[in-house]
């Protein structure tokens, strides 16, 4: 559902950047998506193709870098892997953890012409 809005957001960024970065066409969009970013990667791909139609990114490839969830455990004093926002430390069971990676939802780079 909101993957559609996210794709519209991507196209909007591409259009805004086209003016300042002087390009007419986008061939590849490389984005980072964190595991905790509430985004379904398959849905994102599906929506992107639909939203990009008739835009400067029509037919563009979407490269998705999936970032795993990571959090800081105060008790172990180190970064641990998490798969859910509310996960406890897998090593010591400590809660709450401070999320350090996995919230990302950003455009990293573009291949343009």
């Amino acid at each position: 559902m909101h993957e559609m809005s996210i794709c519209e957001g991507i196209i909007q960024v591409l259009q805004d950047q086209a003016v300042s970065q002087h390009y007419r066409r986008v061939n590849t969009v490389c984005i980072e998506v964190g595991a905790l970013a509430m985004v379904e990667v398959d849905a994102l791909r599906f929506c992107f193709e639909a939203v990009a139609r008739d835009s400067l990114a029509q037919g563009a490839r979407l490269d998705i870098i999936e970032l795993s969830g990571q959090a800081w455990c105060q008790q172990c004093a180190k970064t641990v892997a998490i798969t859910q926002r509310y996960d406890a430390c897998a090593e010591c069971g400590y809660l709450p953890l401070q999320i350090t990676q996995g919230d990302e939802l950003r455009i990293k780079e573009l291949e343009v012409e």
């Binding site: 957001g9 960024v13 970065q21 390009y23 950003r106 455009i107 780079e109 291949e111 343009v112």
Partner: peptide, 18 residues
């Protein structure tokens, strides 16, 4: 075939506009 000008670093949050 990939020229320098054709890789554009954006580093922009997708929900930044919202």
């Amino acid at each position: 075939g990939l020229s320098q000008t054709r890789m554009v670093q954006i580093e922009q949050d997708i929900l930044g506009k919202n």
